[in-house]
Amino acid sequence: MYEFFKTLDRRWIFLLMLIAVGLPILRGWQFPERPSPMVQSVFDAIESLPEGSQVWMAYDYDPGSQGELHPMALAFTRHCALKKLKMYYMTLWPQGPPMIQKNVDVLRNEFPDLQYGVDYVNLGYRPGYEGPIKLAVTDLRKTIAADVDGKSLNDLPMTKGLKNIQNVDLIINVSAGYPGTKEWVLYAATPYNISSVAGCTGVQAPYLYPYVPQQLNGLLGAIKGAAEYEFLLLEAYPQLRENPEAQEALRRMGPQLLAHLVLIALIVIGNVIYFVGRRRGDV
């Protein structure tokens, strides 16, 4: 047994992980969540906005991080739509537009009353890393003259009078790296005192915690944060319970639980081998 684990082929670990992730997905295991204060503050930041408030949806992620970030992005979209907020979508990532499109599709299909250009607008991708942020807060039209379909901002009711984003009520940033939350905080939220919440990947979360609560009202970390957020959303808006797509993050917490348990088991086994080996003089 000791020899087997000591020279364990890592493909066994991969197989174990596959089962840990696959089983809850196939069986549809779902667990209730207990929202943390951090997630609650993100939820409250949106929930407290009056109808018609302007929300800047900065979605900076790509298909690679879609698995981790898309559920929270959709949860933000649904929440804003239910609150009848005005949503401005924009991305600084070249692979971001299809991610935004998926959010827009949700608005079209689930909230047919909302009108494009009146309730939400897709401003597409802007190249130049943090450059477009600096321009958006001072003179929006210097970086964005038209929406994703090439329609002039002057022809869209939502953007007609929008000179810059200093007066938006909230910035919601979902980011998988650079440019992302840090840049939105440094160049928009902090210098212009714009309320801001963010969602990020698991590895980024520790890096962004220093910005909470003064520069970020709250932060959702990976699927766990998204699941807690969905839980709060379902509590506040029970009509979403009939929509399985609105519970995507909650469904993904099953695989996360088992994967974490497998990780702990692997660490324990690794240490047992280490101590046994040390006693035998192998280490």
Binding site: L8, L16, M17, D62, P63, S65, L263, G270, Y274
Partner: peptide, 23 residues
């Protein structure tokens, strides 16, 4: 892209098994 990103789950497991020792 999603495949490459999800490989991380497997690699984290093998790295954890190998590196987290109470030395």
């Amino acid at each position: 892209q999603a495949t490459m990103f999800s490989l991380l789950a497997f690699f984290i497991a093998s790295a954890a098994f190998r590196a987290f020792r109470a030395k």
